[in-house]
Write a protein that binds this DNA or RNA. Structure first.
Lengths: 117, 117
DNA sequence: GAATATACATAGAATTATGATGTATCAAAA
DNA sequence: TTTTGATACATCATAATTCTATGTATATTC
C-alpha cells in the first residue's frame, strides 16, 4: 500500500527539482528517505514524494551535475548522502527564481484579487 | 517560428485546465485564440499557450463534460465559442481550490520566509 | 501582392511522476 | 521468536500532459 498525495500528480511536475535543490541548500547533506520525510512534514502530509519519483530524480540530478553524494553505512545499511555541487548551487538560484516568478504569474491569472507575492 | 514561454513546459502541467476554467468563469464565452491572447496579455507574455497545447486541451475538457461550445461564423471563418457546462462550473471550484492550496504549500517549502497566501 | 495576424487542427516526441514490484536491514511489538 | 512496520535503496512500464512541427484557410495591413 502507498499514500497518495492530495494533489494531482501533474501539478508537481517541474517543481520536484526545485524542492530538492532548496532543501539541500538548507541542509548541507541529506539522504533520499530523509528528504521525503522532510517534505511530508513540511507540507503536513500534503506532498508525499513517492520512491518511484524521488530516487530517479536524485539520480537524474546527479547525472546532470547538480548533485553529488557519498555513501555512509549505518550498521549494514547504506545511505546515500546527497549534496549540492558548485553547479547545483548556482542553478538553484535560477530554478527558484523561475518557480517564484511562475507562482506570482499564476496568482495574477487565477487569484487577481490577491496582492502579488 | 514560435514564441517560447519563459517557463519550462513542465511547470505549466496541471495548471492549464484551471486557467481555462477560471477565464471561462469570468467571460461567459471565449474562443481558443481569444483565450491564448488573454493569457498572454494577463501575464505580460510570460505564459504563451501554444496551439498544440490549447486546442487539444479544449477538446479534452469538452469530452470530459466541463465545456461545451457553439460555432459562429465571422465572414467565412469559423470560431468555436466555448463556455462552462454545469459540471464545469462545479468542478471549477475544486480545481481552483486545489491549485490555490498547492501554491500555498509550495510557498511553505520553497519560500518559508513569506507569509502563506 | 506579399506579409502578418487570425483561427482552427492533428500527430509524434519529450518529459516526468506514478504504480508496481523487488531487495534488504533494523526495531518493536505480539 | 516471529512477525509487523519502518527504514533505505532500486528499476521498469505506464500514464498524463505539453510541446514541436506541420497543415489548412481566411482576413487584414502594408
Amino acid at each position: 500500500m502507498y499514500i497518495r498525495s492530495m494533489y494531482s500528480k501533474e501539478l508537481l511536475k517541474g517543481t520536484l527539482t526545485a524542492i530538492i535543490l532548496k532543501l539541500l541548500a538548507e541542509h548541507e547533506k541529506m539522504y533520499g528517505y530523509e528528504i521525503s520525510q522532510h517534505v511530508k512534514e513540511l507540507t503536513g502530509g500534503k506532498i508525499h514524494l513517492k520512491d518511484g519519483s524521488l530516487y530517479p530524480a536524485l539520480q537524474k540530478m546527479t547525472a546532470d551535475g547538480l548533485l553529488s553524494y557519498k555513501e555512509e553505512y549505518i550498521g549494514k545499511r547504506v545511505r546515500k548522502y546527497y549534496f549540492l555541487t558548485k553547479k547545483g548551487q548556482k542553478e538553484k538560484v535560477a530554478y527558484l527564481e523561475e518557480l517564484k516568478d511562475f507562482i506570482g504569474t499564476l496568482n495574477k491569472i487565477v487569484f487577481p484579487q490577491l496582492k502579488s507575492i
